[in-house]
Design a protein around this nucleic acid. Structure first.
Length: 854
RNA sequence: GGGCGGUUAGCUCAGCGGUAGAGCACUCGCCUUACAAGCGAGGGGUCACUGGUUCGAUACCAGUACCGCCCA
């Protein structure tokens, strides 16, 4: 085999793009539902077509890529299905903003032309995301890429809508919903973000006896009652009477309702059924009229001087008017209270009474909870399951209609005589019927993602093979946004089969101080920036190395550089192995202790890596492979191999080949690009992507060899410490006499001398220092006086440690309770420690006594 | 207000009943023929606090303080 010319530094940009294109054109990522292999499937949480991938996506994708690459290498028929969702509100907002620059509104274009325009934007924006995924190295099956608005998925949406409608689980009703006066659409509960904002609490006198407190004085224009608690004696005599509503002259009733908290404020509350969800319920209970006093933009429509004012202008105006009449009893400002904001545009949400479509979630949510309760779906880490239960067990009906144009139009048509028909994909409405103008919540279609992407409602081979999917990988922040919805729809559409066997949740990516990344704080990391500067592998490895299940990942530039260094280390170590003729082949039966040691360690590491991957412990898998690769393979084994090669031990090449072949395959799911390049060079194979995952082989387990090499390491480390303490330069050769015969280290003299730069003693050898390590005496001739003070300091320090340990251990052994109750193996360990610390003390005292004075 | 999680080395985090660990940062010495994106050595922690369980607690239990997240 010829030695390939590899540069001394790994340059990711030189290999990443071409490797990726070769993987795709090789068809490695394509999934075949017809193969006889065990299936493994993941659907990519579809990013919003309007956005760009941020570092959080990079983490999410890195995990999925690691899982699916490993599954593929383990011989499973692996599907990682990519795609995007149409992000109704966000996308429409972006395109409307673009139009705004041209001085146009969507109404100027009309619905059809506007949607045409959105599709153009979708191609442009979506294309950017696809490019980012390629740069990351995502091994997805591009032939199965889906989009929530594509034809097949739209059929799925219409099909399930009709099914739910026919089952009575979708209904239309006039309710108080969350309304965004800027986006001009309804929102579901989870699209509202609550924050503690500074507002005001104003107490208004409605009569001599009635004072109400409110944070939203402007809504008093729409009051239709005052409510008190039925058992509140202060107001019992007023129940059933009326009071005049200030500023309006309307008389409104005083009603008794359990909902009122008599301890809050005066115990009287104003009731505005059209502008508050709680008041709406009170209104229903008491058959109160609902009076809408604001339009869709939050502008006051009530008659009077306030008409035409925005809700935030109306607020002080109403208070001023009341104050003028002496009706303001108290004002508290600022007053901290929870305020809902549109999660898209941060506008304060307005509760609004309107006619909308809802999903009756009770039976669906119960099924979604049960699937996790009975273990059909496992949430990982398990402590996050509680959040899931809290959500699904107390879910309100889901408002699914949106007053937008971009999305799946509600498949309901209204006839001229008030008929309402819901139609499936291949049905058409009778002449003269008009379709509902609204579209569905984006989550309605992304809730179908795990099966709509596989061809549902058709009974496709893909669906039969890859559903339920093996695992869903997503952030814990999206557990109820999306996971709960997919669970509900999946169980409903797929006859009680949940969409995932496991939901593996990861955390958010944060900066090096654990701070949330935000544009305003300026600590946002762009994954492409890191990919350019450190490589895709380093970017991924940095993220995976911090990814503990369910917890946040802190990253920094320094750590990305560290990951890059790791890739470079692997690169150079493999380069060294290749330069020395590393080759893959049958290993001979007779190998050196060093060979048997590294092969034995390899088996252990394979087992540990498997265990970590199975439990989504990516940080652990990364860490243990990092240390095995760097500390054991690249450091100790390569140094030992150098000695073996210089001794002409040809088998070393086969061991090098074997170890690097396995190591590169183990690392491939984490750092796919550098391992691909190197693995091909080592093995001559087509691609590590389609190689096999290493399997631990018990025949190579060799505790004796491990113990032997451990002794070598101890000896070498101790003498290095002496050298360092004595200020001997690393390259400086020192004459030494080793008394290894009869010890476990007998065979390792050459290695020890090489690692420690120890020369054979000459005729004039005169030991200036003598050290005892691991039962071996090493005499050194440092060719001059040694630094006695430094050596004494060192020995005294070690002696202090040994004495402290001896005292600790003696105390234990002298403790009757400990001796009586501690398990035998622990006692045995303590006894062994007692012996070794006693030996250490004797040795160190001897060495100290032997030191020349001074 | 309810719930969950956290508090271990300067920073970020592992460990989770029996001798305190990693990466980065730091100090010292080295361009030792794979790698200075490197090599060798080193310093650094009463494991938040208070009780309890135990022969033994950083780890288990209870409480306190502080931090973070989710929900209302």
């Amino acid at each position: 085999m010829t030695t390939p010319e590899l540069p001394t530094q790994y340059t990711p940009a030189d290999v990443e793009t071409q490797s990726y294109e070769r993987w795709v054109s090789g068809g490695y990522f394509g999934a075949d539902p017809g193969s006889g292999r065990e299936p493994y499937s993941i659907v990519l949480p579809p990013p919003n077509v309007t956005g760009v991938l941020h570092i959080g996506h990079a983490l999410d994708h890195s995990i999925q890529d690691a899982l699916s690459r490993r599954a593929r290498m383990r011989g499973m028929e692996t599907l990682w299905l990519p795609g995007m969702d149409h992000a109704g509100i966000a996308t429409q907002n972006v395109v409307e903003r673009e139009l705004g620059k041209e001085g146009l509104s969507r109404h100027d274009l009309g619905r059809e032309a506007f949607i045409e325009r959105v599709w153009q934007w979708k191609d442009e924006s979506g294309g950017r995301i696809l490019g980012q995924m390629r740069r990351l190295g995502d091994g997805v099956d591009w032939s199965r890429e889906r989009f929530t608005m594509d034809e097949g998925l739209s059929r799925a949406v219409q099909t399930i809508f009709k099914r739910l409608f026919d089952d009575g689980l979708i209904y239309r009703a006039e309710r108080i919903i969350n309304w965004c006066p800027r986006c001009l659409t309804a929102l579901s509960d989870i699209e509202v973000e609550h924050s503690e904002d500074e507002g005001e609490l104003v107490s208004i006198r409605y009569s001599d006896e009635i004072v109400v407190a409110t944070t939203r004085p402007e809504t008093m224009l729409g009051d239709t009652a005052v409510a008190v608690h039925p058992s509140d004696e202060r107001y019992a005599h007023l129940i059933g009477t009326t009071v005049e509503l200030p500023l309006t002259g309307r008389r409104i009733p005083i009603v008794a309702d359990e909902h009122v908290d008599p301890a809050f404020g005066t115990g009287c509350v104003k009731v505005t059924p059209a502008h508050d969800p709680n008041d709406f319920e009170i209104g229903r209970r008491h058959s109160l009229p609902s009076l809408t006093v604001m339009d869709e933009r939050g502008v006051i429509t009530a008659h009077g001087p306030f008409q035409g004012l925005d809700r935030f202008e109306a607020r002080p105006a109403v208070v001023a008017a009341l104050r003028q009449q002496g009706l303001i009893v108290a004002e508290k400002r600022p007053y901290l209270h929870a305020v809902g904001h549109c999660s898209r545009c941060k506008t304060v949400v307005e509760p609004r009474l309107s006619l909308q479509w809802f999903v009756n979630v009770s039976p669906l949510a119960k099924a979604a909870g049960d699937a996790v309760r009975d273990g059909r779906t496992r949430i990982h880490p398990p402590e996050l399951a509680k959040r899931y239960f809290d959500w699904v067990d107390d879910m309100h009906d889901w408002c699914i209609s949106r007053q937008l144009w971009w999305g799946h139009r509600i498949p309901v048509w209204y006839g001229p005589a008030g008929e309402v028909v819901c139609l499936g994909p291949d049905e058409s409405a009778p002449e003269g019927y008009v379709q509902d103008p609204d579209v569905l919540d984006t989550w309605f279609s992304s809730g179908l993602w795990p099966f709509s992407t596989l061809g549902w409602p058709e009974k496709t081979p893909e669906l039969a093979r890859f559903y339920p999917t093996s695992v869903l990988v997503t952030g814990y922040d999206i557990l109820f946004f999306w996971v709960a919805r997919m669970m509900m729809f999946g169980l409903y559409a797929m006859d009680g089969q949940p969409p995932f066997r496991t939901v593996a949740l990861h955390g958010m990516v944060r900066d090096q101080f654990g701070k949330k990344m935000s544009k305003s704080f300026g600590n946002v990391v762009d994954p492409l920036d890191w990919i350019e500067r450190y490589g895709a592998d380093a970017t991924r490895f940095t993220l995976l190395r911090g990814a503990n299940p369910g917890s946040d990942v802190a990253v920094s530039e320094d750590w990305a550089a560290g990951s890059r260094n790791f890739c470079n280390k692997i690169w150079n170590a493999t380069r060294f192995a290749l330069m020395n003729g590393a080759a893959v082949g049958e290993l001979p039966d007779s190998l050196t202790a060093a060979d048997r040691w590294i092969l034995s360690r390899l088996q252990t590491v394979i087992g540990e890596a498997d265990a970590a991957f199975e439990e989504f412990e990516f940080a652990k898998a990364s860490d243990l492979l990092y240390h095995f690769a760097w500390d054991e393979v690249c450091d100790w084994y390569l140094e030992l191999a150098k000695v073996q090669l210089s001794q002409g031990l040809e088998d070393t090449r086969l061991v090098l080949g074997h170890v690097f072949d396995a190591l590169l395959r183990l690392l491939h799911p984490l750092v796919p690009f550098v391992t691909e390049e190197l693995w091909r060079a080592v093995t001559g194979g087509e691609s590590v992507v389609v190689s096999t995952w290493p399997v631990a082989d018990a025949r190579y387990a060799d505790p004796a060899a491990e113990a032997e090499i451990l002794a070598v390491q101890e000896l070498v480390t101790e003498i290095r410490r002496f050298r360092s303490d004595q200020g001997l330069k690393p390259g400086q050769k020192v004459a030494a006499r080793l008394s290894l015969s009869g010890t476990a280290l007998a065979e390792h003299e050459a290695a020890i001398r090489s690692l420690l730069r120890l020369q054979e003693p000459s005729e004039t050898f005169a030991a200036t220092a003598s050290l005892v390590v691991a039962g071996v005496t090493v005499q050194l001739d440092t060719a001059g006086t040694i630094d006695v003070a430094a050596e004494r300091k060192r020995l005294e320090k070690d002696l202090a440690v040994a004495r402290k340990d001896a005292a600790q251990v003696a105390a234990k052994l002298g403790n009757e309770q400990f001796m009586a109750k501690a398990p035998d193996d622990v006692v045995a360990k303590v006894r062994a420690r007692a012996e070794s610390s006693a030996a250490d003390i004797a040795r160190l005292e001897g060495q100290l006594a032997a030191l020349p004075a001074g």
